[in-house]
Design a protein around this nucleic acid. Structure first.
Lengths: 122, 122
DNA sequence: TTATGTGTATTATACAAACAATACACCAAT
DNA sequence: ATTGGTGTATTGTTTGTATAATACACATAA
């Protein structure tokens, strides 16, 4: 469900936060759904449980998840003012386009590369 | 010439390393070209000189730049086995596509978003 | 030679991130 | 009540990043 890249430079807990937000915005996680337990997630990704807990904590502060003592974290009811799909794409979109510019890759070539990768990436 | 984003989670010196590589691969920096001085770059981006120096040092280790004492850092002659344009795009490309997948954004919609942003981003 | 420009080394401080190992409070099902 | 599942707090350690303030070795041009 989650894909963590420890070598990317982006802190692990931030990767988790971003991915949960996107899965919620994309409907793969719906209000009321339970998230993987801290220990399970930490185990399958070889990561410290407190790192996962830190991500969950931040998501609760931002209103994305609900914390109910003794129970798994749960996706919060949809709120007005939730980050939109496009909002959550702007960052990787900007990064890609800036990179392409520095590499001298023009728009048509970029679209070809996207199509080429789109199905190769899980 | 460089765009630094201190809040992205990616270390500043790594942002610099990646951007220099792309500018070299894209031909905006050619073998023999001088790079901005450590102090100038640090000054214009409000960053510590040693942070810039760390990036330059890594680029020299990787063979991208030449260090010649008392002189500005210089782009190294082209080597066989240099990272290709596509190599240097894979990372942001992968990140974007994974994000789109999690958001439920399909390929046609993604292409529209790219066209929309392509000219808005400097 | 002198002055000013390179990049770098040094020392110290500060902070964030991640880990490890425990222990706790709570809920739910037995 | 006991057991085993939640998330969390605590303490301590380690590593990487970035800063600050100096100082140095070298090159180039005046």
């Amino acid at each position: 469900m989650f894909i963590l890249n420890p070598g990317s430079g982006v802190p692990i807990y931030r990767q988790l936060v971003e991915q949960v937000k996107r899965l919620v915005a994309g409907g793969q996680l719906r209000p009321g759904d339970s998230l993987p337990s801290v220990r399970e997630l930490a185990g399958t990704h070889a990561v410290n449980p407190m790192t996962v807990s830190k991500a969950y904590n931040q998501l609760e502060l931002e209103g994305v998840l609900l914390r109910r003592r003794g129970r798994p974290m749960e996706v919060a009811p949809w709120r007005d003012g939730e980050a939109s799909t496009e909002d959550l794409l702007v960052e990787p979109l900007t990064e890609l386009i800036r990179s392409a510019r520095q590499l001298g890759v023009k728009l048509p070539e970029l679209k070809v590369l996207i199509e080429k990768h789109y199905r190769n990436i899980k």
